[in-house]
Structures are given as C-alpha cells and as structure tokens.
Amino acid sequence: MPLFTDHADVSVRPAVPGDETPIARVQLAAWRDEHADVLGADVLDLLDEQAVVDQWASAISAAPTGHRVLVACDGATVVGFTAIAPVPAPDDAAPGGVILALEVLPQAQRGGHGSRLLAAAVDLLREQGADQVHTWVLDGDDARAQFLRGAGLGPDETTRELASGTQPDGSHRVVTEHRWWGAI
C-alpha cells in the first residue's frame, strides 16, 4: 500500500482566529460568482471586504452559545465555510438549527467540500439536540437547490423578501429567498 496518494488532504475543522480573512474571501468570491445576477453586480461591488472580515472575526471569537463556524480545507488552504446557529424549540418540541451560510470557492466546488461542511454542521446541530435544520436559498440559485435536494432537504413554501440595493431609478431591488428544511 503506497504511503502517498495523488489526492490532497481535505478536511473540515472549527474556524479559529486567523480564518476570518480566507472566510471573507470565499464568501465574496462565491457571491460574486453565483449571485451577481440576482443581487446585482453593483451591490456586490460595494461590499467592504474588511467589514466582512471583521464580522467573521467576531463570529469566530465571540459567537453566542451554540453558534459555530466551520471551515473546509484543501491541505492547509481554506476553500469553504459554514456557519450554524440553534433555533429555540417551540413548547415541548425538540430544537432545530439553521445553516446561516455555506459557501465554497467557485474553483473548489464539486470536490466534496460542501457535502463535508453540511455533514459536519448537521452533526453539531444533532449534538445540540436539534431534530431538524433549515436554510435559505435565493431565487434562481439552482445549483444550491440541487445540492440541498441531493442532501435530503426540500422547500417548505416559506419565502422572505430582502432589499438588495437601489436601482438607477431610485427603486429598491428586492430578492426572494425560499426556506429549505429537513429532519436530521
């Protein structure tokens, strides 16, 4: 049996201080690649990378109880991330969980990183007692919908509308997200 393979070491681990910059770069690259048509390239161009870095630094070092950030690595390089949070249980029901973000660098997609991140997120939520998970998918994000469907999640008919910048005529661009969920 050979000691070395031609495959890179791939893993998922908890995010640590210092991961905030690669996480922000992954998020911005993925959004620009996947959501420019829906969110608007003009809106994405206005995003302040340092502000995104600062938000992830806070999420990593000062997260509320139950909130977690995980990174997917190809060797030592961060190529993806996910952020999760608990959802309080109504009455006597079991609590749930929400995937707040799950992104992989465009050039690293289809390498299993998203699946590893989703599996790790679900495992952590189960450890917290969750019996279901949900996330939000932008209108037109067919690749994410296909990924989630393949993982056993599905839409539940709940939608929400979010403002995404101002149009040249002064009106506000509105995007629609659909909630996807699954039992875990």
Rank of each mutant, 00 (worst) to 15 (best):
A8N: 14
A8M: 15
R25S: 13
L28I: 02
H35N: 10
A36T: 10
D37T: 12
D37K: 08
A41T: 12
V43F: 14
L44V: 01
D45K: 07
D48F: 11
V52I: 09
V53T: 07
D54R: 14
Q55P: 02
W56P: 01
S61Q: 09
T65I: 02
L70Q: 06
D74H: 12
G75C: 04
T77L: 08
V79R: 00
T82V: 12
P88V: 11
A89T: 10
D92C: 12
D92E: 15
A94I: 04
V104I: 02
G111S: 14
G112C: 09
G114I: 00
L118A: 02
A119R: 15
D123R: 11
V133Q: 00
H134Y: 14
V137H: 00
D139P: 02
G140E: 01
G140I: 01
D141P: 00
D142R: 15
A145Y: 01
L153V: 12
P155M: 04
E161D: 15
A163N: 00
S164F: 03
G165K: 01
T166Y: 07
T166V: 13
T166C: 06
Q167P: 00
G170D: 06
G170V: 03
S171C: 04
H172I: 13
V174D: 11
R179V: 11
A183K: 14
